[in-house]
Nucleic acid binder design. Structure first.
Lengths: 228, 228
DNA sequence: TTAGTGGTTATTGTCGACAAAGTGGTGTTA
DNA sequence: TAACACCACTTTGTCGACAATAACCACTAA
Protein backbone atom coordinates (compact mmCIF):
# COMPACT_ATOMS: atom_id res chain seq x y z
CA UNK A 1 0.00 0.00 0.00
CA UNK A 2 2.70 2.42 1.00
CA UNK A 3 5.07 1.14 -1.63
CA UNK A 4 2.53 0.91 -4.40
CA UNK A 5 4.61 3.51 -6.19
CA UNK A 6 7.70 1.36 -6.26
CA UNK A 7 5.56 -1.59 -7.28
CA UNK A 8 4.32 0.16 -10.35
CA UNK A 9 7.71 1.28 -11.51
CA UNK A 10 9.41 -2.00 -10.74
CA UNK A 11 6.59 -3.89 -12.40
CA UNK A 12 8.99 -4.59 -15.25
CA UNK A 13 11.26 -7.30 -13.91
CA UNK A 14 14.77 -7.31 -15.32
CA UNK A 15 15.70 -10.75 -16.54
CA UNK A 16 18.88 -10.11 -18.47
CA UNK A 17 21.96 -8.09 -17.72
CA UNK A 18 21.03 -5.56 -20.36
CA UNK A 19 17.66 -5.05 -18.66
CA UNK A 20 19.26 -4.43 -15.31
CA UNK A 21 21.75 -2.02 -16.79
CA UNK A 22 19.05 -0.17 -18.68
CA UNK A 23 16.91 0.28 -15.58
CA UNK A 24 19.92 1.42 -13.59
CA UNK A 25 20.94 3.89 -16.29
CA UNK A 26 17.41 5.23 -16.56
CA UNK A 27 17.19 5.61 -12.79
CA UNK A 28 20.50 7.44 -12.62
CA UNK A 29 19.51 9.75 -15.43
CA UNK A 30 16.01 10.50 -14.18
CA UNK A 31 17.25 11.18 -10.66
CA UNK A 32 20.07 13.37 -11.89
CA UNK A 33 22.95 11.14 -10.77
CA UNK A 34 24.06 11.44 -14.37
CA UNK A 35 23.53 15.15 -14.91
CA UNK A 36 21.55 16.60 -17.80
CA UNK A 37 23.57 17.46 -20.86
CA UNK A 38 26.45 15.21 -19.95
CA UNK A 39 27.85 12.85 -22.49
CA UNK A 40 27.47 9.10 -22.12
CA UNK A 41 30.76 7.49 -23.00
CA UNK A 42 30.27 3.84 -23.80
CA UNK A 43 33.67 2.72 -22.61
CA UNK A 44 33.46 4.76 -19.45
CA UNK A 45 30.01 3.45 -18.56
CA UNK A 46 31.03 -0.10 -19.37
CA UNK A 47 33.76 0.02 -16.74
CA UNK A 48 31.56 1.89 -14.29
CA UNK A 49 28.63 -0.55 -14.48
CA UNK A 50 30.94 -3.54 -14.95
CA UNK A 51 29.35 -4.87 -18.12
CA UNK A 52 30.38 -5.16 -21.71
CA UNK A 53 30.15 -2.25 -24.10
CA UNK A 54 27.46 -4.04 -26.05
CA UNK A 55 25.23 -4.07 -22.98
CA UNK A 56 25.79 -0.37 -22.46
CA UNK A 57 25.08 0.28 -26.12
CA UNK A 58 21.78 -1.52 -25.92
CA UNK A 59 20.90 0.45 -22.81
CA UNK A 60 21.72 3.74 -24.50
CA UNK A 61 19.65 2.77 -27.52
CA UNK A 62 16.68 2.03 -25.32
CA UNK A 63 17.18 5.33 -23.51
CA UNK A 64 17.21 7.08 -26.86
CA UNK A 65 13.93 5.39 -27.76
CA UNK A 66 12.45 6.88 -24.57
CA UNK A 67 13.88 10.29 -25.52
CA UNK A 68 15.88 10.42 -22.31
CA UNK A 69 19.10 10.74 -24.30
CA UNK A 70 19.88 12.07 -27.74
CA UNK A 71 22.16 9.98 -29.90
CA UNK A 72 24.08 11.19 -32.89
CA UNK A 73 25.76 8.73 -35.23
CA UNK A 74 29.52 8.45 -34.80
CA UNK A 75 29.46 11.11 -32.15
CA UNK A 76 27.73 9.77 -29.08
CA UNK A 77 24.78 10.17 -26.77
CA UNK A 78 24.00 13.03 -24.41
CA UNK A 79 21.42 13.25 -21.69
CA UNK A 80 18.67 15.45 -23.06
CA UNK A 81 19.01 19.05 -22.06
CA UNK A 82 15.67 20.14 -20.78
CA UNK A 83 13.95 23.39 -21.60
CA UNK A 84 10.89 24.87 -19.92
CA UNK A 85 9.19 24.75 -23.31
CA UNK A 86 9.83 21.03 -23.46
CA UNK A 87 8.11 20.52 -20.14
CA UNK A 88 5.12 22.53 -21.31
CA UNK A 89 4.93 20.45 -24.47
CA UNK A 90 5.09 17.32 -22.38
CA UNK A 91 2.11 18.45 -20.36
CA UNK A 92 0.18 19.15 -23.54
CA UNK A 93 0.68 15.55 -24.57
CA UNK A 94 -0.24 14.39 -21.09
CA UNK A 95 -3.42 16.43 -21.23
CA UNK A 96 -4.49 14.74 -24.45
CA UNK A 97 -3.49 11.21 -23.48
CA UNK A 98 -4.61 11.19 -19.87
CA UNK A 99 -7.86 12.88 -20.79
CA UNK A 100 -8.54 9.99 -23.13
CA UNK A 101 -7.36 7.59 -20.43
CA UNK A 102 -9.90 8.99 -17.99
CA UNK A 103 -12.63 8.66 -20.60
CA UNK A 104 -11.71 5.04 -21.28
CA UNK A 105 -11.30 4.32 -17.58
CA UNK A 106 -14.87 5.48 -17.02
CA UNK A 107 -15.89 3.03 -19.72
CA UNK A 108 -13.75 0.03 -18.86
CA UNK A 109 -12.77 0.00 -15.19
CA UNK A 110 -14.53 -2.68 -13.21
CA UNK A 111 -16.62 -1.71 -10.20
CA UNK A 112 -14.00 -3.32 -7.99
CA UNK A 113 -11.25 -1.22 -9.53
CA UNK A 114 -13.30 1.93 -9.02
CA UNK A 115 -13.92 0.99 -5.41
CA UNK A 116 -10.23 0.32 -4.91
CA UNK A 117 -9.41 3.67 -6.43
CA UNK A 118 -11.81 5.39 -4.08
CA UNK A 119 -10.14 3.55 -1.22
CA UNK A 120 -6.80 4.84 -2.39
CA UNK A 121 -8.07 8.39 -2.31
CA UNK A 122 -9.41 7.85 1.22
CA UNK A 123 -6.03 6.68 2.42
CA UNK A 124 -4.44 9.65 0.71
CA UNK A 125 -6.88 11.96 2.43
CA UNK A 126 -5.61 10.83 5.81
CA UNK A 127 -2.03 11.36 4.83
CA UNK A 128 -2.68 14.77 3.40
CA UNK A 129 -3.57 15.97 6.86
CA UNK A 130 -0.32 14.68 8.33
CA UNK A 131 2.51 14.80 5.83
CA UNK A 132 1.53 16.70 2.76
CA UNK A 133 4.77 16.27 0.94
CA UNK A 134 4.46 12.52 0.84
CA UNK A 135 1.14 12.69 -0.91
CA UNK A 136 2.31 14.80 -3.77
CA UNK A 137 5.15 12.65 -4.90
CA UNK A 138 3.85 9.13 -4.49
CA UNK A 139 0.12 9.64 -4.30
CA UNK A 140 -0.21 11.75 -7.39
CA UNK A 141 1.81 9.33 -9.48
CA UNK A 142 -0.14 6.43 -8.06
CA UNK A 143 -3.47 8.03 -8.87
CA UNK A 144 -2.57 8.80 -12.45
CA UNK A 145 -1.06 5.38 -12.87
CA UNK A 146 -4.32 3.71 -11.90
CA UNK A 147 -6.38 5.80 -14.26
CA UNK A 148 -4.06 5.03 -17.14
CA UNK A 149 -4.02 1.30 -16.53
CA UNK A 150 -7.77 1.46 -16.01
CA UNK A 151 -8.16 2.58 -19.60
CA UNK A 152 -7.24 -0.96 -20.65
CA UNK A 153 -5.64 0.56 -23.75
CA UNK A 154 -2.21 -0.99 -24.14
CA UNK A 155 -0.85 1.69 -26.47
CA UNK A 156 -1.95 4.45 -24.12
CA UNK A 157 -0.47 2.61 -21.16
CA UNK A 158 2.90 2.02 -22.74
CA UNK A 159 3.32 5.54 -24.11
CA UNK A 160 2.59 7.05 -20.72
CA UNK A 161 4.06 4.57 -18.27
CA UNK A 162 7.14 3.53 -20.21
CA UNK A 163 7.77 6.86 -21.87
CA UNK A 164 6.32 10.17 -20.75
CA UNK A 165 6.21 9.59 -17.01
CA UNK A 166 9.95 9.02 -16.80
CA UNK A 167 10.54 12.17 -18.81
CA UNK A 168 8.23 14.16 -16.56
CA UNK A 169 9.97 12.88 -13.46
CA UNK A 170 13.30 13.84 -14.93
CA UNK A 171 12.14 17.32 -15.83
CA UNK A 172 10.71 17.80 -12.37
CA UNK A 173 13.91 16.71 -10.70
CA UNK A 174 16.11 18.82 -12.94
CA UNK A 175 13.99 21.93 -12.67
CA UNK A 176 13.61 21.42 -8.94
CA UNK A 177 9.86 21.15 -8.61
CA UNK A 178 9.05 19.12 -5.54
CA UNK A 179 5.41 18.98 -4.54
CA UNK A 180 3.05 21.84 -5.22
CA UNK A 181 -0.70 22.09 -5.26
CA UNK A 182 -1.32 19.40 -2.74
CA UNK A 183 -4.76 20.06 -1.37
CA UNK A 184 -6.46 21.39 -4.46
CA UNK A 185 -5.03 18.56 -6.53
CA UNK A 186 -6.56 16.16 -4.07
CA UNK A 187 -10.01 17.64 -4.60
CA UNK A 188 -9.53 17.39 -8.34
CA UNK A 189 -8.64 13.74 -7.99
CA UNK A 190 -11.79 13.18 -5.98
CA UNK A 191 -13.96 14.78 -8.63
CA UNK A 192 -12.36 12.73 -11.38
CA UNK A 193 -12.97 9.50 -9.51
CA UNK A 194 -16.56 10.50 -8.91
CA UNK A 195 -17.05 11.04 -12.63
CA UNK A 196 -15.54 7.64 -13.35
CA UNK A 197 -17.73 6.02 -10.72
CA UNK A 198 -20.76 7.59 -12.40
CA UNK A 199 -19.50 6.28 -15.74
CA UNK A 200 -19.58 9.82 -17.10
CA UNK A 201 -16.92 9.59 -19.80
CA UNK A 202 -17.33 13.14 -21.00
CA UNK A 203 -16.94 14.65 -17.55
CA UNK A 204 -14.09 12.36 -16.59
CA UNK A 205 -12.08 13.40 -19.61
CA UNK A 206 -12.82 17.08 -19.13
CA UNK A 207 -11.89 17.04 -15.45
CA UNK A 208 -8.68 15.16 -16.10
CA UNK A 209 -7.71 17.60 -18.81
CA UNK A 210 -8.39 20.52 -16.53
CA UNK A 211 -6.43 18.85 -13.75
CA UNK A 212 -3.37 18.53 -15.95
CA UNK A 213 -3.87 21.97 -17.43
CA UNK A 214 -3.82 23.44 -13.93
CA UNK A 215 -0.60 21.63 -13.20
CA UNK A 216 0.84 23.02 -16.40
CA UNK A 217 -0.17 26.56 -15.52
CA UNK A 218 1.25 26.11 -12.07
CA UNK A 219 4.54 25.05 -13.55
CA UNK A 220 4.56 27.93 -15.99
CA UNK A 221 4.14 30.34 -13.13
CA UNK A 222 6.94 28.72 -11.19
CA UNK A 223 9.22 28.87 -14.21
CA UNK A 224 8.55 32.51 -14.97
CA UNK A 225 8.98 33.35 -11.28
CA UNK A 226 12.47 31.84 -11.11
CA UNK A 227 14.17 32.70 -14.40
CA UNK A 228 17.26 30.60 -13.68
CA UNK B 1 4.33 17.24 -54.67
CA UNK B 2 3.38 13.82 -55.85
CA UNK B 3 6.04 12.17 -53.78
CA UNK B 4 5.55 14.26 -50.69
CA UNK B 5 4.50 11.06 -49.00
CA UNK B 6 7.80 9.38 -49.60
CA UNK B 7 9.58 12.55 -48.61
CA UNK B 8 8.02 12.60 -45.20
CA UNK B 9 8.77 8.99 -44.46
CA UNK B 10 12.30 9.12 -45.79
CA UNK B 11 12.94 12.34 -43.95
CA UNK B 12 15.17 10.37 -41.57
CA UNK B 13 18.35 9.75 -43.51
CA UNK B 14 20.21 6.58 -42.64
CA UNK B 15 23.85 7.27 -41.90
CA UNK B 16 25.03 4.02 -40.40
CA UNK B 17 24.56 0.42 -41.42
CA UNK B 18 22.33 -0.22 -38.44
CA UNK B 19 20.09 2.64 -39.57
CA UNK B 20 19.75 1.24 -43.05
CA UNK B 21 19.00 -2.21 -41.73
CA UNK B 22 16.43 -0.87 -39.28
CA UNK B 23 14.59 1.09 -41.97
CA UNK B 24 14.65 -1.91 -44.29
CA UNK B 25 13.37 -4.20 -41.56
CA UNK B 26 10.62 -1.78 -40.63
CA UNK B 27 9.61 -1.41 -44.25
CA UNK B 28 9.50 -5.16 -44.77
CA UNK B 29 7.45 -5.66 -41.63
CA UNK B 30 5.00 -2.83 -42.25
CA UNK B 31 4.44 -3.90 -45.83
CA UNK B 32 3.99 -7.51 -44.87
CA UNK B 33 7.10 -8.87 -46.62
CA UNK B 34 7.89 -10.33 -43.23
CA UNK B 35 4.47 -11.68 -42.26
CA UNK B 36 2.76 -10.91 -38.98
CA UNK B 37 3.39 -13.38 -36.20
CA UNK B 38 6.54 -14.75 -37.78
CA UNK B 39 9.63 -15.12 -35.68
CA UNK B 40 12.68 -12.96 -36.33
CA UNK B 41 15.73 -15.18 -36.13
CA UNK B 42 18.82 -13.09 -35.60
CA UNK B 43 21.18 -15.45 -37.39
CA UNK B 44 18.81 -15.92 -40.29
CA UNK B 45 18.25 -12.20 -40.75
CA UNK B 46 21.96 -11.48 -40.44
CA UNK B 47 22.69 -13.69 -43.45
CA UNK B 48 19.66 -12.40 -45.32
CA UNK B 49 20.51 -8.71 -44.91
CA UNK B 50 24.26 -9.37 -45.08
CA UNK B 51 25.17 -7.65 -41.85
CA UNK B 52 26.44 -8.75 -38.50
CA UNK B 53 24.15 -10.15 -35.85
CA UNK B 54 24.80 -7.11 -33.68
CA UNK B 55 23.34 -4.86 -36.36
CA UNK B 56 20.27 -7.06 -36.62
CA UNK B 57 19.95 -7.08 -32.86
CA UNK B 58 19.99 -3.30 -32.72
CA UNK B 59 17.36 -3.18 -35.44
CA UNK B 60 15.12 -5.61 -33.60
CA UNK B 61 15.50 -3.62 -30.41
CA UNK B 62 14.44 -0.47 -32.18
CA UNK B 63 11.52 -2.29 -33.74
CA UNK B 64 10.51 -3.46 -30.29
CA UNK B 65 10.64 0.12 -29.06
CA UNK B 66 8.14 1.02 -31.83
CA UNK B 67 5.98 -1.93 -30.79
CA UNK B 68 6.29 -3.43 -34.24
CA UNK B 69 7.77 -6.61 -32.77
CA UNK B 70 7.50 -8.24 -29.37
CA UNK B 71 10.71 -9.44 -27.80
CA UNK B 72 10.97 -11.99 -25.04
CA UNK B 73 14.25 -12.50 -23.23
CA UNK B 74 16.16 -15.62 -24.22
CA UNK B 75 13.37 -16.61 -26.60
CA UNK B 76 13.30 -14.17 -29.48
CA UNK B 77 11.25 -11.55 -31.26
CA UNK B 78 8.02 -12.00 -33.19
CA UNK B 79 6.23 -9.58 -35.46
CA UNK B 80 3.27 -8.33 -33.45
CA UNK B 81 0.12 -10.26 -34.15
CA UNK B 82 -2.56 -7.72 -34.79
CA UNK B 83 -6.04 -7.85 -33.40
CA UNK B 84 -9.01 -5.71 -34.41
CA UNK B 85 -9.14 -4.49 -30.81
CA UNK B 86 -5.56 -3.31 -31.15
CA UNK B 87 -6.45 -1.22 -34.16
CA UNK B 88 -9.39 0.30 -32.32
CA UNK B 89 -7.15 1.16 -29.39
CA UNK B 90 -4.69 2.72 -31.78
CA UNK B 91 -7.37 4.99 -33.16
CA UNK B 92 -8.35 6.02 -29.67
CA UNK B 93 -4.80 7.20 -29.08
CA UNK B 94 -4.80 8.90 -32.46
CA UNK B 95 -8.01 10.70 -31.60
CA UNK B 96 -6.50 12.11 -28.44
CA UNK B 97 -3.13 13.04 -29.90
CA UNK B 98 -4.21 14.37 -33.26
CA UNK B 99 -7.04 16.30 -31.66
CA UNK B 100 -4.45 18.05 -29.54
CA UNK B 101 -2.24 18.43 -32.61
CA UNK B 102 -5.04 20.24 -34.45
CA UNK B 103 -5.57 22.51 -31.47
CA UNK B 104 -1.89 23.36 -31.30
CA UNK B 105 -1.68 23.72 -35.07
CA UNK B 106 -4.43 26.33 -34.92
CA UNK B 107 -2.31 28.12 -32.35
CA UNK B 108 1.14 27.77 -33.82
CA UNK B 109 1.01 27.31 -37.59
CA UNK B 110 2.22 30.32 -39.51
CA UNK B 111 -0.06 31.97 -42.03
CA UNK B 112 2.16 30.67 -44.78
CA UNK B 113 1.85 27.11 -43.53
CA UNK B 114 -1.92 27.44 -43.38
CA UNK B 115 -1.99 28.79 -46.91
CA UNK B 116 0.21 25.94 -48.09
CA UNK B 117 -2.07 23.47 -46.39
CA UNK B 118 -5.06 24.97 -48.13
CA UNK B 119 -3.19 24.67 -51.40
CA UNK B 120 -2.56 21.02 -50.67
CA UNK B 121 -6.26 20.46 -50.17
CA UNK B 122 -7.00 22.22 -53.47
CA UNK B 123 -4.62 19.94 -55.32
CA UNK B 124 -6.20 16.96 -53.62
CA UNK B 125 -9.61 18.16 -54.68
CA UNK B 126 -8.61 17.94 -58.31
CA UNK B 127 -7.24 14.45 -57.90
CA UNK B 128 -10.29 13.22 -56.04
CA UNK B 129 -12.35 13.78 -59.17
CA UNK B 130 -9.98 11.68 -61.29
CA UNK B 131 -8.36 8.89 -59.31
CA UNK B 132 -9.98 8.55 -55.94
CA UNK B 133 -7.81 5.72 -54.73
CA UNK B 134 -4.67 7.78 -54.97
CA UNK B 135 -6.03 10.44 -52.71
CA UNK B 136 -6.85 8.15 -49.87
CA UNK B 137 -3.47 6.59 -49.43
CA UNK B 138 -1.07 9.45 -49.97
CA UNK B 139 -3.26 12.47 -49.48
CA UNK B 140 -4.74 11.46 -46.19
CA UNK B 141 -1.34 10.67 -44.71
CA UNK B 142 0.05 13.90 -46.07
CA UNK B 143 -2.74 15.95 -44.56
CA UNK B 144 -2.40 14.44 -41.12
CA UNK B 145 1.34 14.74 -41.31
CA UNK B 146 1.14 18.46 -41.87
CA UNK B 147 -1.24 19.03 -39.00
CA UNK B 148 0.97 17.09 -36.64
CA UNK B 149 4.13 18.90 -37.61
CA UNK B 150 2.20 22.15 -37.49
CA UNK B 151 1.63 21.61 -33.79
CA UNK B 152 5.32 22.39 -33.26
CA UNK B 153 5.25 19.97 -30.32
CA UNK B 154 8.22 17.68 -30.65
CA UNK B 155 6.88 15.00 -28.32
CA UNK B 156 3.59 14.87 -30.19
CA UNK B 157 5.40 14.73 -33.50
CA UNK B 158 7.71 11.91 -32.56
CA UNK B 159 5.08 9.73 -30.94
CA UNK B 160 2.86 9.98 -34.00
CA UNK B 161 5.32 10.10 -36.89
CA UNK B 162 7.96 7.73 -35.59
CA UNK B 163 5.60 5.44 -33.74
CA UNK B 164 1.88 5.21 -34.27
CA UNK B 165 1.73 5.94 -37.98
CA UNK B 166 3.91 2.96 -38.85
CA UNK B 167 1.76 0.76 -36.67
CA UNK B 168 -1.40 2.06 -38.32
CA UNK B 169 0.03 1.43 -41.77
CA UNK B 170 0.96 -2.08 -40.78
CA UNK B 171 -2.48 -2.82 -39.36
CA UNK B 172 -4.12 -1.45 -42.47
CA UNK B 173 -1.96 -3.58 -44.75
CA UNK B 174 -2.44 -6.71 -42.70
CA UNK B 175 -6.18 -6.34 -42.32
CA UNK B 176 -6.50 -5.40 -45.97
CA UNK B 177 -8.06 -1.95 -45.71
CA UNK B 178 -7.20 0.00 -48.78
CA UNK B 179 -8.91 3.36 -49.11
CA UNK B 180 -12.37 3.99 -47.77
CA UNK B 181 -14.34 7.13 -47.13
CA UNK B 182 -12.69 9.20 -49.81
CA UNK B 183 -15.07 12.03 -50.51
CA UNK B 184 -16.50 12.57 -47.05
CA UNK B 185 -13.03 12.49 -45.55
CA UNK B 186 -12.05 15.23 -47.95
CA UNK B 187 -14.84 17.47 -46.71
CA UNK B 188 -13.79 16.79 -43.15
CA UNK B 189 -10.25 17.82 -44.00
CA UNK B 190 -11.56 21.03 -45.50
CA UNK B 191 -13.50 21.90 -42.38
CA UNK B 192 -10.52 21.20 -40.15
CA UNK B 193 -8.30 23.48 -42.20
CA UNK B 194 -10.93 26.20 -42.09
CA UNK B 195 -11.01 25.99 -38.32
CA UNK B 196 -7.24 26.22 -38.19
CA UNK B 197 -7.26 29.19 -40.58
CA UNK B 198 -9.75 30.89 -38.26
CA UNK B 199 -7.47 30.11 -35.31
CA UNK B 200 -10.38 28.35 -33.63
CA UNK B 201 -8.51 25.87 -31.46
CA UNK B 202 -11.58 24.41 -29.85
CA UNK B 203 -13.30 23.68 -33.15
CA UNK B 204 -10.15 22.38 -34.81
CA UNK B 205 -9.64 19.85 -32.06
CA UNK B 206 -13.25 18.78 -32.04
CA UNK B 207 -13.39 18.35 -35.82
CA UNK B 208 -10.17 16.37 -35.90
CA UNK B 209 -11.40 14.09 -33.14
CA UNK B 210 -14.64 13.52 -35.00
CA UNK B 211 -12.74 12.89 -38.20
CA UNK B 212 -10.68 10.13 -36.58
CA UNK B 213 -13.68 8.79 -34.70
CA UNK B 214 -15.52 8.38 -38.00
CA UNK B 215 -12.58 6.50 -39.44
CA UNK B 216 -12.60 4.26 -36.40
CA UNK B 217 -16.30 3.54 -36.73
CA UNK B 218 -15.81 2.85 -40.42
CA UNK B 219 -13.11 0.34 -39.59
CA UNK B 220 -15.23 -1.29 -36.93
CA UNK B 221 -18.01 -1.81 -39.45
CA UNK B 222 -15.61 -3.29 -41.95
CA UNK B 223 -14.19 -5.63 -39.35
CA UNK B 224 -17.54 -6.87 -38.14
CA UNK B 225 -18.69 -7.31 -41.75
CA UNK B 226 -15.79 -9.59 -42.67
CA UNK B 227 -15.23 -11.91 -39.68
CA UNK B 228 -12.09 -13.51 -41.11
C1' DT C 1 47.28 36.58 -36.22
C1' DT C 2 44.32 33.64 -38.47
C1' DA C 3 42.74 30.42 -41.67
C1' DG C 4 43.62 26.10 -43.48
C1' DT C 5 45.84 21.43 -43.49
C1' DG C 6 47.75 17.37 -41.91
C1' DG C 7 48.30 13.71 -38.69
C1' DT C 8 47.14 11.72 -34.08
C1' DT C 9 44.06 10.05 -30.77
C1' DA C 10 39.93 8.81 -28.75
C1' DT C 11 35.25 7.21 -29.55
C1' DT C 12 31.78 4.85 -31.94
C1' DG C 13 30.35 1.17 -35.43
C1' DT C 14 30.87 -3.59 -36.74
C1' DC C 15 32.23 -8.19 -36.38
C1' DG C 16 33.01 -13.15 -35.01
C1' DA C 17 33.41 -16.24 -31.02
C1' DC C 18 32.17 -17.90 -26.55
C1' DA C 19 28.69 -18.45 -22.65
C1' DA C 20 24.09 -19.23 -21.13
C1' DA C 21 19.45 -20.15 -21.52
C1' DG C 22 15.57 -22.44 -23.73
C1' DT C 23 13.55 -26.12 -26.87
C1' DG C 24 12.78 -30.60 -28.39
C1' DG C 25 13.44 -35.41 -28.41
C1' DT C 26 14.61 -39.80 -26.15
C1' DG C 27 14.48 -43.00 -22.80
C1' DT C 28 13.18 -44.66 -18.32
C1' DT C 29 9.92 -45.56 -14.68
C1' DA C 30 5.59 -45.68 -12.16
C1' DT D 1 0.30 -45.07 -21.31
C1' DA D 2 1.72 -40.98 -19.07
C1' DA D 3 4.85 -38.35 -16.62
C1' DC D 4 9.35 -37.12 -15.54
C1' DA D 5 14.33 -36.61 -16.11
C1' DC D 6 18.16 -36.16 -18.99
C1' DC D 7 20.77 -34.95 -22.99
C1' DA D 8 21.78 -32.76 -27.43
C1' DC D 9 20.92 -28.80 -30.15
C1' DT D 10 19.42 -24.38 -31.43
C1' DT D 11 18.98 -19.54 -30.33
C1' DT D 12 19.87 -15.64 -27.69
C1' DG D 13 22.99 -12.97 -24.42
C1' DT D 14 27.59 -11.29 -23.65
C1' DC D 15 32.18 -10.31 -24.62
C1' DG D 16 36.68 -8.53 -26.54
C1' DA D 17 38.97 -7.10 -30.84
C1' DC D 18 39.18 -4.71 -35.16
C1' DA D 19 37.56 -1.03 -38.54
C1' DA D 20 35.80 3.47 -39.49
C1' DT D 21 34.66 7.94 -38.31
C1' DA D 22 35.02 12.30 -35.99
C1' DA D 23 37.36 15.48 -32.69
C1' DC D 24 41.78 17.58 -31.31
C1' DC D 25 46.13 19.68 -31.91
C1' DA D 26 50.18 21.08 -33.96
C1' DC D 27 52.04 23.11 -37.97
C1' DT D 28 52.35 25.91 -42.13
C1' DA D 29 51.33 29.72 -44.98
C1' DA D 30 49.11 34.04 -46.28
Amino acid sequence: MVNSLSVQITLEKPVTNADRTFYQLRKDIVEGVIPAGSKLSETELSTKYEVSRAVIREGINRLAACHLVERKANIGAKVVSLTPEGLIQLYQVREALEGMAARLAARHMSDEEVASLQGLLDSHFNKVKDAQLYYQEAGDVDFHYRIVTGSKNSHLISVLIDGLYHLVRMYRVQLGMAGPRVTTAFDEHRHIVNAIANRDEELAEMLMRRHILYSKNNIENKLSATPT
